[in-house]
Each structure stands twice: as structure tokens, then as C-alpha cells.
């Protein structure tokens, strides 16, 4: 549905499950440590976010297999489409929001791996121009977040999250490019929100 070439949806889905499995496996130590040590507020937030993601991913994958018309067609699943359809719609949207929160919680790791932190911190050496880069990137992030909030409302994402919109609408007037722009901006907005919240939590923990 909603792809110019129908099997694309399923192939991308399978690839994402593979990426997900690799990611979970690579971070298996986090899961093993879940019952160890003390829980401070920050760790609670992180754990809740990860656990919600895990539930979403499972529902998304299972319903995806059930809904498959191509890749998993050989399984011959002929019932449960109504449940699977609703599960897929709900899980995908909640997953999206929580992936954004997850990205926000790990933004330092991501940036240092990608060398972005170093780029911003050490841009061209001179202290003044480095501050310039920081200011410009903060403004860019603020604008992107504001646009993300707008996109969230404009596309009625809350309607999908609460099942007020039971069938997906692909707005062809906005097209595919804006689809990606809008959803990436929403990720930025959610990530920034959780970064703010978690830094508040950390401040309170210290203070």
C-alpha cells in the first residue's frame, strides 16, 4: 500500500527488521544488565523508552509478516488481517515517536561516532568561529523542531497514535519528498524535547 511498487514496503520492512536485530544483538549487554544496579530517574526514562520500543518492534514485525502479500505470502496466512492492520498502524506510529526519543537519549553517542561533536567543537580551531558554528547549528535545530511540531499537527500524527484515524492517508499533494522532510523534522522535535527533559532530570539529580 502507498508505494509505487507494492513489494517495496515489505522488502524495506524486512531490511529494517534485520537492522533492528543487529542493533539489539550488538547492544545485548544493555538487556543483560537490566536487572542489575540502581535505577535513577534518568535510567528509568531510558529503560521505559527502550521497553516500549521493543514491544512496538515485536508487534510491528509480527503484524508485518501477517499482512505480507509478497515476501511472506508462502506462509499462507489467511486470517487476522483486521487485527494485524490495526496493530501495524498503531505500532508503527508509536515506534516512530519512541525511536525519536531513543535517538534523543543517545544523541551524544551518535554525534561522537559520526564525528559531528568534534566538528562542532573544533571547527577550524578559532574559538570565535567555533562558537559561530554552535549558534548556527542551534538555530537550525530550533527551526527544524518548530517545523517538526507543525508537521506533527498538519499530518495529524496524534490521530494515528490514538486510532482516531484508522486507515493510513498518503498525502500525494505533499508528495514523497515532503513526507521524508516532515518525518525527519518530527524526529528532531521529539529528540530535542527528550534532551531538554533529561537534562532537567540530570540537573535535579545533581542538585
Amino acid at each position: 500500500m502507498f508505494f509505487p511498487w507494492a513489494p517495496a514496503h515489505e522488502i524495506i520492512g524486512v531490511l529494517l527488521i534485520v537492522v533492528w536485530a543487529v542493533h539489539v544483538y550488538a547492544n545485548r549487554r544493555w538487556f543483560k544488565a537490566i536487572f542489575c544496579g540502581r535505577y535513577n530517574p534518568y535510567r528509568i526514562v531510558q529503560t521505559v523508552v527502550n521497553c516500549v520500543m521493543l514491544v512496538c518492534a515485536l508487534f510491528l514485525a509480527i503484524s508485518g509478516v501477517m499482512l505480507s502479500n509478497h515476501v511472506f505470502a508462502f506462509l499462507g496466512i489467511e486470517s487476522g488481517a483486521s487485527f494485524a492492520r490495526t496493530a501495524h498502524l498503531l505500532a508503527s506510529h508509536w515506534y516512530f515517536v519512541f525511536i525519536a526519543l531513543h535517538i534523543g537519549l543517545h544523541v551524544n553517542v551518535i554525534f561522537s561516532r559520526l564525528g559531528i561533536a568534534r566538528f562542532i567543537a573544533g571547527a577550524s580551531g578559532a574559538a570565535s568561529s567555533s562558537r559561530g558554528v554552535v549558534v548556527v547549528s542551534r538555530i537550525a535545530v530550533a527551526l527544524a523542531s518548530a517545523y517538526g511540531v507543525y508537521a506533527f499537527i498538519e499530518r495529524g500524527l496524534w490521530k494515528y497514535l490514538t486510532l482516531q484515524q484508522p486507515f493510513f492517508f498518503m498525502d500525494m499533494e505533499r508528495g514523497y519528498v515532503l513526507f521524508f522532510v516532515d518525518y525527519i523534522a518530527m524526529i528532531v522535535a521529539f529528540a530535542v524535547a527528550i534532551i531538554f527533559i533529561s537534562s532537567l532530570i540530570r540537573l535535579r539529580q545533581r542538585g
Binding site: 499482512l67 502479500n69 509478497h70 486470517s79 487476522g80 488481517a81
Partner: peptide
């Protein structure tokens, strides 16, 4: 029933 119809419709589309 809607729940049954949607199964049949899905199979036909597939």
C-alpha cells in the same frame, strides 16, 4: 462480517 471480508479482500489483492 467486516473482519472476515477484510481477510478475503486482502487475499484477492495479494
Amino acid at each position: 462480517k467486516y473482519d472476515d471480508c477484510i481477510n478475503v479482500a486482502k487475499k484477492e489483492l495479494a
